[in-house]
Design a protein around this nucleic acid. Structure first.
Lengths: 206, 206
DNA sequence: ACTTTGACCGACTCGTCGGTTTGTAACATT
DNA sequence: AATGTTACAAACCGACGAGTCGGTCAAAGT
């Protein structure tokens, strides 16, 4: 019976991975269940055996894949105790590097889905907003810790800085999709470095 | 015959305005021609009398409405000869204010459409990228003029700064769609002000 | 040996959407 | 008055997509 469950989970996982790939590439509404099933050489029956609906399927993708990826790419990497700006820089440098190679970086995936579902599917929007909130809360607390530990200027507005970082990151991804992604990444990172420098503590703790 | 032409253009204009409104709200692929025609109490025949296809229709919307709005909201407002940072701040403050009221601000519209068409419709992507390029070129030249006129630090990287401004603006819109738009606008503008301050000329011209 | 169940197949329904075709009232032209 | 043209309306077509449903079949349970 464990065997059974394993097979079930393996199939569901395959569906979700391929589903996210295609939803990301073509958008949710512009990707049919059949597209996904064709790639996996599975049938409609298989799909509706495991999932209630396309929406249910997508929500499970969010919970199983999106949330975890955001954790591993945007949250955990900034949680060390080194210099806060450095950690943030490294994290987003990394995230944008996958973007340059046209892979899925999940900050961008999030942004795409938000603009696709905004005003159209409140249920899914709720799940997406949850992820954004987690990301934001984490960034804010990292910045506040940076203040405590003396890397960041005590007068910096943690919420504002977090919002600005998230915004610029999500936006630059949109601008990287067609034009000189690598050059834009470099330019962007320079400016981000300058911005972070401007909120660093000028009188470092002893 | 001038009368005729006027009627023709009036109908086409009505279609485009309503079309953009719905395309923005629901996305291009998720808005049917019939949705638009229903709102205008027109029929399919009317639509295909004036336009070759849905794609042709959308491209005309880009050329007639989007381009002009981007000019009037994001380009012309920063072209004065006052302090460059101030002009930029005022311009984006204004653009975000319409966003707070859930109206269309066209930087965001652009970003939405780019993520919807990216990788799916190269023809439309070309038109959208043209607008982005115009916006970018203009911002760069404004910043360079700011250097000439002594408002901006001569060492600032105009392309980088422009990219950073565009990115953060497009990104913050995504983050404003559901959560506390007005508070986020305020926070964002504070950070943008700080960023622009950090590239202002510290030894102003005499 | 048998029954049950988990995993899956594939044909079908029903609605939607882009696009076509045919018709027609109003107006302009000759 | 007869004819053509403009600007639509209405019915229709073919495709595609979500979801359903009866059936299959191997493995597990008994």
């Amino acid at each position: 019976m464990m065997q059974k469950n394993l097979k079930r989970m393996a199939t569901m996982q395959r569906m979700q991975v391929t589903g996210l790939e295609l939803f990301y590439k073509n958008g949710y509404y512009n990707t049919s269940i059949d597209d996904i099933l064709k790639k996996l050489e599975l049938s409609k029956g298989a799909f509706y055996y495991h999932y209630e609906s396309k929406e249910d399927f997508f929500i499970q993708i969010i919970e199983n894949l999106l949330v975890r990826k955001v954790y591993s790419m945007l949250i955990e990497p900034v949680e060390g105790h080194e210099n806060t700006s450095d950690l943030i820089m490294q994290c987003y440098d990394n995230a944008l590097e996958t973007a340059v190679h046209n892979e899925m970086d999940f900050g961008f995936v999030l942004g795409n889905f938000i603009s696709e579902f905004n005003g159209r599917n409140p249920k899914i929007m709720k799940h997406l907003n949850d992820i954004i909130r987690i990301w934001e809360v984490n960034l804010v607390s990292v910045i506040q810790r940076g203040k405590f530990e003396g890397h960041i200027d005590r007068h910096a507005d943690a919420e504002g800085v977090a919002l600005f970082i998230m915004s610029s990151f999500m936006g630059v991804r949109t601008l990287m999709v067609e034009t000189a992604p690598s050059a834009r990444k470099y330019r962007f990172m320079s400016q981000l470095r300058m911005f972070l420098k401007s909120i660093e503590n000028k009188q470092p703790a002893l």
